[in-house]
Amino acid sequence: MSASANVEVKVKDGSGEDPEKLAAFEAHVQAGGLIEPNDWMPEDYRSLMLRMAEHHANSEIVGALPEGEWITRAPNLKRKLALTAKVQDEVGHGQMLYEVAQDLGKSRNAMLRDLITGKTKYHNCFNYPCPTWADICMIAWLIDGAAILNQGTLAHGSFGPYIRTMRRINMEEAFHFKHGEDMVLTLMSGTEHQKKMAQDAFDRWWGPSIAFFGPHDRPDELERPAMKWRMKTATNDELRQKFVNRFAPAAMATGLVINVCEKDEHGMVTKATPDPLLKLDEETGNWGFTQPDWDEFYRVIRGNGPCNDERVALRRFSYEQGEWVRNAILNGQTTSQN
């Protein structure tokens, strides 16, 4: 569960580079060519790829936090095994992606420290609360489903180490997603109480799911470095539309209602009304939908969401508590813990 689609990109486009080298590089990647770490690349490509991989890695390990809390409360042994495996997978994805980022020039240690001091970000959707088991089901279905759509396109990007990691990660995301479908379908074929739990969780997660792909495309989207250099192969709005086309009819088939929701400061829904724009355009095959609340999106991404402090605090707590382990491994010494 994760993706790097909504990294805020404020990167230059390689204009300081040797124009001949840059032109050859761009022709190579635009023709589908791939870049390996020892190949020549514009400095801006390297730093943007590093930030994408770092943001993605951060998202994997922060994303595991709300799910980890539910392991002890899973409804049965099978679900507990699966959730434990999912959390283990996510942390493993973080490890692999930090490895990719590290090879682009930033130490793992600096990345872990920047995450817990708020210098770098992780995916915005993990700043929302996860109050019931049904939230776990919706995250695995909707957020992992969104991640698969996004990462399926990232796996066709231009940087060799990142796309190899993406292919490997996608194999595990496929399990998370199937498991999520199974859980949602189970809830929605259950009792009225289960269905209500599922609907309430769906109301909390539909907005973050369609906001998952990041802000609206800019008019010059295709000319911007991430697209031009084929780090991304689909735009945010393309992926969002694809997501709605896939998930809106599926959700309705299970009996879920797609609502436009107002939320309080804890991320809990205070008002839910059926999305008035939700209908199929027969000509284009696209489903209409109400855009996510972009004011809320930017408020949360700036650090003022329901769970920002809690997520970073827990990650920091783990980092600080783990200091003696790192010392023991490195020096064979344990510093005293108070």
Binding site: F175, D182, T186, A250, A253
Partner: peptide, 20 residues
């Protein structure tokens, strides 16, 4: 099978086929 996509494919397909 609990940690592989193919461990869920069949049952999930059956559940979708029942409603779509």
């Amino acid at each position: 099978s609990y940690r592989l996509a193919k461990g869920y494919s069949k049952i999930v397909r059956q559940k979708w086929d029942a409603i779509r």
